[in-house]
Amino acid sequence: MKNIIIATRGSQLALWQAEHIKALLMERYPSLHIDLNIIKTKGDKILDTPLAKIGGKGLFTKELEEEMLRGNAHLAVHSLKDVPAEFPEGLALVALTKREDPRDAMLSEKYASLDALPQGAVVGTTSLRRRMQLLAKRPDLVIKNLRGNVNTRIRKLKEGEFDVIILATAGIVRLGLQEEVRYFAPIEKTWMIPASGQAALGIESVDTPELREMLAFLNDDEAIIETTIERDFVRILEGGCQVPIGVNATLEKDHIHVKAMVGLPDASQILEESLTYKREEYAHVGEVLAKRMVERGARALLKEAETMAMTVIFND
């Protein structure tokens, strides 16, 4: 191929991701011509409603996928945590890049850490996973919904709407926004388990042998192992973005360590599991972990969590 079109959202982070992959492709294939097809998705247009109420994180990928299926783009670059488990016929997840820091991070103008927050501090996040884990440790906190792109969220923090906001560390670092606030602190995974796929980039493309071969060099073996486990876990639990699920796999030499948590958004019920397997056994780990959770009633708990989110949390 001599020409490639990358479909992308127009947010600062989405453009960074698309430009990052474009640069890697041009370094690998110097004669390749690459254009960006910038699309404003429904998820970008509706900023006053939580994603779970208007269709979930798939809103950020659906219209990019439609552009590829129409022949108006060859590939799209996604934050893997936003990518659904299933893909439309004719498209595939063909590459996973090296993973950055998967931790969540707290940003604040007043407080240096979550432990330093006073009673009743106001925390901004629309993530049910983050809400659950914050309230599990600090039931006194006031959690308020927060939408918008990264810059909008930081602006709201600076304007005093929140004492703290919670975002993904990788997004802040990629955009170089660590210095935009007085305090930026990644949250240890012992305090908050990240989302499935967090900090990895997934390359979705039209499913052809030529594109698969062209994009294969972007793959990172460690990211594939870790995120395969995490995505299998979520897929088997049938957990969409409307429910609080934290799962993180960490590869350390010849072993993979996995921690997972599911529960209710108000933290009144939580299930936790952890396990360690040999690296070469990774293909089945997500399934094993999910089945353990299912045996403990995880699916019923997640259905209750979805109802709670729709009828209480996202209606306030």
Rank of each mutant, 00 (worst) to 15 (best):
N3G: 09
F314H: 15
L15V: 15
R131W: 00
L264G: 10
S113E: 05
G263D: 06
T49C: 01
W16T: 03
H255N: 12
S11C: 05
E230Q: 01
A290W: 08
E238W: 07
A260G: 15
L211Q: 03
G176R: 09
K110P: 00
I5V: 14
L47T: 14
L218M: 09
K259N: 13
D266P: 02
W16N: 06
L96R: 03
T228P: 11
L13P: 10
V150A: 08
P186K: 12
L128Q: 03
N145C: 14
Q12I: 07
E238K: 15
A73C: 04
L24R: 04
A95V: 00
K45W: 05
V258M: 06
I203D: 09
Q269L: 08
I4A: 14
E27C: 05
P265W: 04
A73M: 03
R231I: 13
G246T: 03
E226W: 07
E213S: 11
E230S: 02
A52F: 12
Q17T: 07
L146K: 00
E180Q: 11
L107D: 01
T228D: 10
L91K: 12
C241I: 04
K2E: 09
L135F: 09
I245N: 07
G120W: 07
R299L: 10
A85Q: 12
A14G: 08
G120A: 13
R212F: 11
I187T: 01
K40D: 15
G56P: 10
N149L: 06
D254M: 08
P118I: 08
I46H: 11
R174N: 15
V294T: 07
P244S: 07
P244F: 06
K137A: 08
I21H: 06
R103A: 01
G240H: 07
G55Q: 05
V122I: 10
T228H: 13
A105P: 03
I236R: 14
R103H: 05
K253Q: 11
A305G: 10
N145S: 15
A112R: 09
A185Y: 12
G240I: 04
E287R: 13
Y282A: 02
R131S: 06
I38G: 01
I143V: 14
H74K: 14
S113K: 05
I39P: 10
A170S: 14
